[in-house]
Simulated scan of single mutants.
Amino acid sequence: MNAKKCAGCGVALQIEDAGRPGFVPEAARDREPVICQRCFRIKHYNDASSVAVDQDDFLRLLGGIASTDSLVVHIVDLFDFEGSMISGLQRFVGNNPVLLVVNKIDLLPRVTNWNRLRNWVQRQAKANGLKVADIVLCSARRNIGFDRVVEAVAELRGERDVYVVGATNVGKSTLVNRLISDYSDLERELTVSRYPGTTLDAVHIPLDDGHAIIDTPGIVYKSRLSEVIPREALQALLPDKPLKPLTYQFYERQTLFFGALARFDFVEGERQSFTAYVSAGIPVHRTKQERADELYANHRGVMLSPPSKEGLDEMPPLSRHTLRIPPGEPQDIFISGLGWITANGKTGAVVDVYAPKGVKVMLRESIL
């Protein structure tokens, strides 16, 4: 048993300690394929018990890719693009080609200009120092564009292994399961859930031609809101339906609260509109800036939720970011894991954004 690995998350199986990763109860030890108790609970009860995985192990695994002859498939979450890009990936992959797969495009409005979006992704990848052989936009969940993903893998891999890399919760295991069904007769399925960090170790899936797909663990970035909020709030935070734009006309000194997770203040500028793109599970409350501190103090965790009052105790305190939006083309105020707010005006503005300390907040070229 200890020589085997879980067919769901890749961790080494063991029968000694139910509190450690990879535990298999006696009743499940003769099953094929064998999955660990954690994967069984995720699959059947949507119960994600927390298991810590060492970040250095992730980086060591990535560091070994450069010495291989492989195709690297980097999956990013379009909803959290800057938050899910692997920082410095180019130095890990060496000369291996990189296929950039942009998942969750089903969250954008149907009227999206896909060619413009693809060009936007190309510019963002270049700004992050990543050289890509190709870009594919897709939705693994809705099976949109997946045929093109399979074609691109076939075109680029030749006689190579395929390493699939990405941050936690970008849809990596969902995508790999689709690749398995196209490239292998192996009857197995990776554990898929809405919780970060489902895959705990590299999962090697042998292909019919003697090569393999290697699904690597998700990289954990604490700069993403999804990594610092309590698990009870994850379902509300992560959208599973197309985003509905919320547009507000703003005068100076008006405020938006996104539950108790973030706050947006329009500090200075001419009257203009801002459009928020966040999960429908996050209630948005508008108020005057002069009342915002009192509102937060009195209603955090109740009217301003998620998370609950108890959940707020698990989160870092809110930290202020002052952003100066230059005049000209629309800009996005990006809050990693929450979504973005588009400043539609062309006259410029000054805004304050409050997010849990350490969460990435930045200005970027508007995605839409």
Score class of each variant (00 low, 15 high):
Met1Ser: 09
Ala7His: 02
Gly10Ile: 01
Gly10Trp: 01
Val11Pro: 01
Glu26Gly: 12
Arg38Tyr: 07
Asp47Tyr: 13
Ser49Gly: 10
Ala52Met: 10
Asp56Gly: 15
Gly64Leu: 04
Ile65Val: 13
Ile65Asn: 02
Leu78Val: 10
Gly83Leu: 00
Met85His: 13
Leu89Phe: 12
Gln90Glu: 03
Val93Gly: 00
Asn95Trp: 08
Asn96Pro: 02
Val98His: 02
Leu99Ile: 03
Leu100Arg: 00
Val101Glu: 05
Asp106Gly: 02
Leu107Gln: 01
Pro109Lys: 05
Pro109Tyr: 11
Thr112Met: 07
Thr112Arg: 03
Thr112Val: 09
Asn115Gln: 14
Arg116Asn: 15
Arg116Lys: 12
Leu117Gln: 01
Lys126Arg: 09
Lys131Trp: 09
Val132Cys: 05
Val136Gly: 00
Arg157Asn: 06
Thr168Ser: 14
Val170Ala: 02
Val176Ser: 05
Arg178Phe: 00
Leu179Ala: 00
Ile180Ala: 02
Tyr183Asp: 00
Thr191Met: 11
Ser193Met: 06
Arg194Ser: 10
His204Ser: 08
Ile205Cys: 04
Thr216Leu: 07
Pro217Asn: 00
Ile219Thr: 06
Ser223Asp: 08
Ala236Arg: 07
Pro239Trp: 03
Asp240Trp: 11
Lys244Glu: 11
Leu246Ile: 11
Gln249Cys: 15
Phe250Met: 15
Arg263Trp: 01
Val267His: 11
Ser273Glu: 09
Gly281Pro: 01
His285Asp: 06
Thr287Trp: 12
Glu290Val: 06
Glu294Ser: 09
Leu295Met: 15
Met303Lys: 13
Leu312Lys: 02
Glu314Pro: 07
Leu318Gly: 04
Ser319Leu: 08
His321Glu: 12
Arg324Pro: 06
Arg324Phe: 04
Phe334His: 03
Ile335Ser: 01
Leu338His: 15
Thr342Val: 07
Ala343Asn: 09
Val350Cys: 14
Lys357Pro: 02
Val359Gln: 01
Lys360His: 13
